[in-house]
Design a binder for these strands. Structure first.
Lengths: 136, 136
DNA sequence: CACATATATATCGTATCCCGATATAAAATG
DNA sequence: CATTTTATATCGGGATACGATATATATGTG
């Protein structure tokens, strides 16, 4: 792939790469739906559980991790909250911030979903490693 | 990560993996919008251009590659067609099938987008290779 | 302290996208 | 030639994310 244009083979490689991403994503979407949550809610729960800060993540933190506008994260948290997956508590040091944590139900569903992803992730891992070689 | 449960570190690794995917996806979405097409239209165009069959892809072929229901692919093709990015022609051997190809404009936009992805893909490649090691 | 500015969350209206259910047409099958 | 399968299409609806905008709190500066 030179700097000016791409060959048919380049496009084919790019398409295969996207297909691999999409198959994984699709698997994940359907696992989420089968667990009774939306794909976006699943990603939200994982972002909370995987948050590595000293405190709980605030809405804006989640927006960054999920690569969303902050008001999109607000809405996502609200929907997940009314579904009983997450809950908010005010930040004692900054009354503007809402700290978000998983409910017990959210914990359980995320745990189940994460285990369900193990095999598919393993498959994705080897496939992606090969494709990344091809892309280089 | 054993078969029963995941540690905090496991969740953190999974979250980092999803974040890497999401950053790439986000970059791609914004590149598409900057080029005047939707992210879904971009993926459609790449799927057509990267199709490796002997003939042009039909709507159902694209549904499989994009991991969509066939009627979702129908709608995507229709929107892309009215935007002048793709066009359909009947399959001479099977009157049910609509073969889909890129218009000149679609070709140009896809070429520009694919070039714009080169650097980001390179970055994604090394990051994902590291993360895949961690996941194993 | 007062006031301007920045930050964090929230609301509203809108557009896209995808889905399930269903329909139509053509091909394949027996 | 009737039945079944395949391919595309239509319709209504729901989830999602966005831009524009609003409100509350915190921070910085004179």
């Amino acid at each position: 792939m030179n700097s000016r244009s791409l060959s048919a083979r380049d496009y084919r490689t790019l398409a295969k790469f996207r297909y691999a991403l999409r198959v994984f994503q699709r698997f994940s979407e359907e696992a989420a739906r089968a667990a009774g949550v939306t794909p976006a809610q699943h990603q939200l729960m994982l972002a909370i559980k995987g948050w590595d800060g000293t405190d709980l993540p605030a809405v804006g933190d989640l927006a960054e991790v999920l690569q969303l506008r902050h008001h999109s994260a607000v809405e996502l948290v609200q929907r997940a909250s009314s579904s009983g997956l997450v809950e908010a508590e005010p930040d004692e040091h900054d009354a503007r911030r809402q700290l978000i944590k998983l409910t017990t139900q959210g914990e359980e569903i995320l745990a189940s979903l994460s285990l369900a992803h193990r095999d598919e992730l393993q498959r994705f891992r080897t496939e992606m490693a090969d494709l990344l070689d091809e892309l280089g």
